[in-house]
């Protein structure tokens, strides 16, 4: 029971996150923006992928954006982490001094 007390907020939080209408994105509500991305002169397959997703399925585009952002955050984090490690600094401890 004690253990449950420790983790219940996490469950409530997850449940809330599953109710999209209840959660508003940081930065205010946005109206749907109808833009058509022009793929007629684009040759790169990578750009075409994004343009097609944008033009055809807003939901999937949102999902791809989230996945892509998460992927970038993790991979760039790992890369810059390696760079920081090479500096030879101690990156695992710090003193807590307020003043």
């Amino acid at each position: 029971m004690k253990r449950f007390y420790r983790i219940w907020p996490a469950f409530v939080a997850l449940a809330m996150l599953l109710v999209p209408e209840l959660v508003m994105a940081a930065g205010g509500k946005a109206e749907m923006l109808i833009v058509v991305a022009d793929n007629r002169t684009v040759e790169s397959g990578w750009f075409k992928f994004w343009i097609d997703a944008y033009n055809t399925d807003p939901f999937m585009f949102g999902l791809y954006c989230t996945l892509f952002t998460g992927f970038l955050g993790v991979s760039l984090g790992l890369i810059t982490d390696q760079i920081m490690k090479r500096t030879g600094l101690d990156l695992t401890s710090r003193k807590l001094v307020e003043h």
């Binding site: 992928f49 791809y64 993790v74």
Partner: peptide, 25 residues
């Protein structure tokens, strides 16, 4: 973290857009 990365790559690769749209102007 590596698992996360691999899952995301797989998800991005597998889930190609269902429709490829043509554009006219």
């Amino acid at each position: 973290i590596l698992c996360c990365i691999v899952t995301m790559i797989v998800a991005l690769c597998v889930a190609a857009p269902a429709n490829a749209a043509d554009v006219a102007q």
